[in-house]
């Protein structure tokens, strides 16, 4: 997973403290040569919530990277989603519109198929409530709906995949949030992707084996350690997890 800000890749910690981690096109060429299964780009600019930056990136990245690519961050309409798909994205990732404009999900799924829509759900754990709270708008607005209700609602609207992202774990490299991932996988009829917290291969193994998740999205693991998708998959294969053979 690669986060975009003003044309550069960055990495955050708990959605804050952005560190520059390079050029999106060069980085994607490297992931292509390392046989990543899929790339996810999220535009995290809080000032410019538009898809213009993503369109520029997909045009360039699709010249060097020959694998499925998902793009999101700032998608406000079905037209935004269609523009990204017609410019080379295979899937779009939506978050905020999934709460109050579900027709963006439905219309995109009707036009391009359910596989084209990933709904990302950002959560923080609230110690007082002893439950997870869902956030939209780059982690700034708390939403008043339970995790399970939201998962079921977005799938009913046409989401083809659900990505659960722990804001608390983002960039910490302390491992995925097993509890919240397990809860989403338990109610989701669509494949679930977990994001937030990747730091080593053991944590990936634990999340795969303990949650029923279909895929893991990793940022820090590949940005800040001597790790790459080839080694990750070789490690996980030794634990009986199947990956594609290239």
């Amino acid at each position: 997973m690669q986060l975009l800000l003003d044309g550069r890749l960055v990495k955050t910690i708990r959605f804050d403290g952005k560190r520059d981690v390079g050029d999106p096109v060069k980085s994607s060429a490297v992931y292509n040569s390392q046989y990543a299964d899929e790339l996810i780009f999220l535009n995290i600019s809080r000032e410019r919530r538009s898809v213009n930056d993503l369109q520029k990136v997909i045009t360039e990245v699709s010249k060097v990277s020959f694998m499925p690519m998902a793009m999101g961050g700032g998608i406000g309409s079905a037209e935004d989603a269609a523009n990204l798909i017609l410019n080379g994205a295979d899937k779009v990732v939506v978050n905020s519109v999934a709460y109050d404009r579900k027709e963006v999900i439905s219309r995109t799924a009707d036009t391009f198929g359910a596989q084209a829509v990933i709904v990302c759900i950002d959560v923080r754990y609230d110690a007082e409530k002893q439950d997870y709270v869902l956030y939209s708008d780059c982690g700034r607005r708390a939403e008043h709906i339970t995790l399970e209700e939201h998962v079921e609602a977005v799938i009913a609207a046409g989401a083809g995949e659900v990505m659960i992202q722990s804001i608390d774990r983002d960039g910490t490299m302390k491992g995925f949030d097993i509890d919240v991932t397990r809860r989403v996988a338990a109610v989701s009829t669509a494949p679930v992707i977990a994001a937030g917290g990747s730091g080593n291969y053991d944590q990936m193994k634990d999340c795969f084996l303990e949650t029923g998740v279909s895929a893991l999205a990793c940022g820090s693991l590949f940005n800040f350690s001597d790790s790459n998708p080839i080694r990750a998959k070789a490690f996980l294969s030794n634990h009986g997890l199947n990956f594609k053979k290239v």
Binding site: T59, L86, G88
Partner: peptide, 13 residues
């Protein structure tokens, strides 16, 4: 309909 650019890019590459 659809995106031809990816196929074009692959051939160009």
């Amino acid at each position: 309909i659809g995106n031809l650019q990816s196929a074009w890019n692959a051939l160009y590459e």
